[in-house]
Nucleic acid binder design. Structure first.
Lengths: 156, 156
DNA sequence: GTTCTCACGTCAATATAGTTGACGTTAGGG
DNA sequence: CCCTAACGTCAACTATATTGACGTGAGAAC
């Protein structure tokens, strides 16, 4: 008789007793985040990267020639925290950094072709999960989801 | 002329160029998670606790006399990872652990009154954010949000 | 009753993602 | 020309997780 300690990765969308009417929603937010990022993280792990690397790739893909300072602003973490994953990406040639001759102060970041591929594949995993969910509820449901998330996201 | 490096905590719901139609949704998930947990985390910090402590308190509140093993199953992390925050909560007397005379093998966890207060206040911060968002879109929107998140959460 | 086994729980070492502090470099304004 | 402040890097530390090793106790085999 084997105990089921092995498949702990699935992490059990818990059937906890609900003390409040919004407890279910609260738990959904938690497991939703995990559900969206899980397959992307698994893919990233196969290429030796993780979430912070993906976040950098994601932003640079959408704003080529961004400076490190601007990148930091968007990511909301310290420049020192960005440094290590950023250097790994440069070293792996997923990113390039050049200083333009006249603006010598900041480095400008850009994805290489390999970097674009990784960014796209990782983000595709996340978008696939979202797409399936939106398909399940139709455009009005998707719009409602976006509206709710917009309000929640503005709580900063 | 002061540069705005100080309020970096607000982390800028970025106005990035959208490469795909679902990019906006993807970013909303990220900032939504942060938006929901931010005020709760700030409260927890004032009492010297953080997210893993809250997760433990949350589960124990909803399943009194839970064993450490069962707690681990629900949290989806290793028993070693649970150990340190759990011991802090015991030491701070926010949790009690007793071994029942006949089931001497596992410890049974329970919240103290102080533990209940902390759990409730932290979770209230999160529920407040959700409630405001749901109020903004009405019951059908809330239901749609739950449906979408349910599908996403099942991606494990 | 003794002993074997295994779940439960703890301790130690390591990895990863973040922080703050200190420092060199470069651009631009007195 | 030099002072200042932004940009970027290096080093040290903290927090949250991981895996591995180990002690303890309950229940079964004998």
């Amino acid at each position: 008789m084997q105990k089921n300690t092995s498949h702990a990765a699935g992490l059990h969308r818990a059937s906890l007793r609900k003390l409040h009417d919004l407890d279910a929603a609260l738990e959904l937010m938690y497991y939703g985040w995990r559900g969206m990022t899980l397959s992307a993280d698994q893919y990233l792990a196969t290429v030796g990267l993780s979430r912070p690397h993906h976040r950098i790739l994601y932003v640079v893909a959408r704003q080529p020639d961004i400076s490190i300072g601007a990148l930091i602003e968007i990511l909301g973490i310290s420049k020192q925290a960005v440094n290590r994953p950023l250097n790994l990406l440069l070293q792996r040639k997923l990113l390039t950094s050049k200083r333009s001759p006249e603006q010598h102060r900041s480095k400008l970041l850009r994805l290489t072709e390999a970097g674009k591929r990784v960014e796209q594949r990782a983000s595709d995993h996340e978008r696939k999960v979202l797409r399936e969910a939106f398909d399940r509820v139709g455009p009005p449901g998707a719009a409602a989801w976006m509206a709710v998330m917009g309000v929640i996201a503005d709580n900063n």
